[in-house]
Structure formats: C-alpha cells, structure tokens
Design a protein around this nucleic acid. Sequence first.
DNA 1: ATGAAGATTGCCT
DNA 2: GGCAATCTTCATG
Length: 250
Amino acid sequence: MCGSGGVLVARDFLDRPSVQVAPEVLGCVLEHETPEGLVAVRLTETEAYAGLADPASHAYRGKTRRNAVMFGPPGHAYVYFTYGMHFCVNLVCLCSDGSASAVLLRAGAVIAGEDLARARRTRRQPDLDGRRSDADGWPPDLDGRKPDTGRPPIAFRDLARGPARLCQALAIDRSLDGADVCVPGSPLRLRWLTEDPVASTAARSEKIASGPRVGVSSAAEVPWRFWVAGEPTVSVYRAHVPRHRKLVTP
DNA sequence: ATGAAGATTGCCT
DNA sequence: GGCAATCTTCATG
C-alpha cells in the first residue's frame, strides 16, 4: 500500500481508448509525494484526446519530442508546458495501435496535503516590486476567516480547479513527464479512492456529466469533457478564443 | 531564422 | 467580459 487509501489503478485500466477511460477515472486519486510532503486529489473533471485521430490532440500531427510520451506505454504521465507559465498533465491511455490517446486531468478535490497545496497555490507577494502594495479590500473569505498576512487564502475548491492549478497544487512539472503512475515506487501515482475498486466505481457512476472540451479550437463539438455533476471543484467552461487578432486595417 | 498560436490563469475595467 | 503574462513548439521562409 502506498500513501493512504486504495490500491493503485492497474495499467490495463488505462490501456483502453481515452474516451472510455476519461469518465471512468473520475473519482480516482492522483497523488504526488515529494520531500515537502504528499498532496492527493480526487479527480472531478477530465477530457479525452484521441491522438492521431483527433485534430485537437497534441499527437494529431505525429510524434515529436514534446508529445513522445503519448506514444509510449500506457499508464505514464504526459506533462506539457503551455502559455509560457503553466503545466498540464495527462494520463497516457491506449497506444499499442499507435493511436496515442490520453486523458487530460482538468480538476480535482484535494483530499490530502491541503496546507501544502494551498502554500503552492498561494501567489507570491508582488510587493517587492511595489507594483501592488494596496492592502485591504480582500474579497470575503468563504470560511469567514481573515487573512493573517499578505494575501487572501485560496478557497478550497480553487486549489486544483483547472488543469494548470491542479499541476501547481501537486507540484507537477516537466520533470514528471513520462512518470509511471502505475507502480508503487513512483512519486506520482494513480489509485482508487477506497480499498475496493468496485465500490469506488459504484460510488461515482451515477453522477457523471459530459460536454464539449474547454479551449479547443478544432473538433469543438465532441462531448469529450467529463465531470462529476454538482462538484464545486469543476472548472468553469470557456469556449476557445483566438488571442491574437490578425491586423486587418493599417 | 522568424513568428504565430497555444488543452490557462489572474487581474483589470 | 477583456486582456496581459510568458515561453515553447511547430510551421514556414
């Protein structure tokens, strides 16, 4: 047994098309153990990417250095860097047929290491530059607590709400690209919520919703985003918006 | 070599 | 609701 709670998810569970895995992996737990401690999240939102068959997938145009892990064995983490500042993590699924399918982990609820997760998610004080020294005017705290110092505490639901936030809370970065999440010795692991995988499955099976994926420009119509209905940790939907408008008139 | 866009987030009006 | 931050990757010349 590793960490706390249930057994590791078997590699065979992930070695299937990502569209099957994405809804079924909801409720499973991703945990990352570092010298600082352990943080674990129960997955509440995922998206399926179908690799070579999916225009929205990083693997659509074939294998490159960045997406190489998606073509490798299933049960490994595909971590990529984006927007110059964020990391996102996927679980590599079926790939024996070269399909390179994967499941993007979009959100989760922290179930272990909340303090550490909050520390990682607390933005650094920008006062050093003197750019934002205006104290006061904090938004109302959900718990009714006043901030002790500096910044307002991050709400619990926001700790891993969104793919980049999830990575920040778990301290997932480039160094974990390719990490095997199906072996006990790995720092990054995927396990069932309870000791009984069947019970874990039954507990979440009736409340899964689905819809279009967030922020994708192509294949925007396929409902390959899955989430646990009613979960406050599920990220808000945002349609894709091109950021660089092309200059039309001088 | 160069440039555009990106599986995002947080702060602005 | 809009936009800047920030840098890697990929496509094109």
